[in-house]
Design a protein around this nucleic acid. Structure first.
Lengths: 201, 201
DNA sequence: GTCTATAGTTCGATAGAC
DNA sequence: GTCTATCGAACTATAGAC
């Protein structure tokens, strides 16, 4: 009789996989990619190194999986923050304030997502990450232009610029350990949008 | 009699090294990192694969060397452009217009410098690249604030934001092949600086 | 899962400098 | 005659195709 994976076994496998992913996510958040050696992840998950490879063919696949999961969480967070009622410019601001606050609360993780030198696979994921982020911002900028609350501009270009700006501004504090100045970033975004708030900011 | 490297031999060695570096630079500019296989570089340089390893212990070392050389050239170009007389805001604009124009003239190279997924060593070099770029911009922003031509702001933060913005905006056109809209980028920079030109831009 | 293609690196052989 | 710069096929690993 051929071996068949019973539901019970499958359940245990799924649970183990989740444990491993959770351990890798925590390692990433606390120690970045340097802390994501397979042995460190396995130890944290309470499994053998070999068990990690039962679920992921290579370490890179595990790390990419974790990266995507964390990024999805972050993009969802800023999307939710910007979905709350308000002027388009305020929605854009909500995106970046949420982004910055979350990054500064988990600086090691943010650095890993944004800039920590790793490999080509993660580099490619980062491009995707920024594109997703830009999509969220671009919508609100375009809405602002359409409503006349913002001066005429290419929404996607402004959005890309703001995403690049926010990422670059955060990398400094994340690297040096200094608390970044979120208020200054806010001022920059307001001015760059050219919204009516620009004068009082 | 022990063998001693004569000046003549050394000269030939230096010339060969320069040839290899030039070939790698051209490959990078035309085909990015994908075009920088050791065999392709060697062929272009007219030497054997093994000879490359006489000058660089690994391919990564060669590529990092080329990256640094090209980046130095680019940073020097924008620094020179911004050194010409003018208002601080105009100097900042000169940096980004020069940057963008040069990038669009050599799109494959620019993509390689800015975003092409590669490896951790190049990622680390990119952080340095952006820091050097930010330094140039920050000086002019600070000068503008001091002269009262720009509203009070953290010069380094604004500079980092603009560098991030410009890089991110360029990645789109560089990836898609569309000619990027440099004029729109200019408008963005002007607004973000908050200079007196902002109203007529 | 096997097989093929490709890329980075190594190394023994050769030719030429000393 | 000794030593080394150069060469390029061979080795090893990895990625993609079937």
């Amino acid at each position: 009789m051929p071996y068949r994976r019973t539901p019970k076994v499958q359940e245990r496998l799924d649970a183990q996989r989740a444990t491993i992913v959770a351990a890798a996510t925590e390692q990433l958040a606390e120690h970045g990619y340097s802390g994501c050696s397979v042995s460190a992840v396995a130890e944290r998950a309470g499994v053998a190194v070999g068990s990690v490879y039962q679920h992921f063919p290579t370490k890179a696949d595990l790390v990419v999986h974790v990266f995507r999961q964390v990024v999805t969480r972050e993009v969802d967070a800023v999307r939710a923050a910007s979905a709350r009622p308000g002027e388009p410019a305020e929605r854009v601001l909500a995106v970046f304030e949420t982004f910055a606050q979350r990054a500064l609360k988990a600086p090691r993780q943010a650095y890993a997502l944004l800039a920590e030198p790793v490999d080509a696979r993660i580099d490619a994921e980062r491009l995707e990450f920024r594109r997703a982020f830009t999509d969220v911002v671009a919508e609100h900028v375009a809405a602002g232009v359409k409503a006349g609350a913002l001066p005429p501009q290419d929404g996607r270009l402004t959005a890309a610029a703001l995403v690049g700006a926010a990422a670059e501004v955060l990398i400094g504090p994340l690297t040096s350990g200094n608390a970044g100045d979120v208020a200054e970033l806010r001022t920059f975004v307001v001015r760059a949008l050219g919204g009516s708030d620009a004068r009082h900011a």
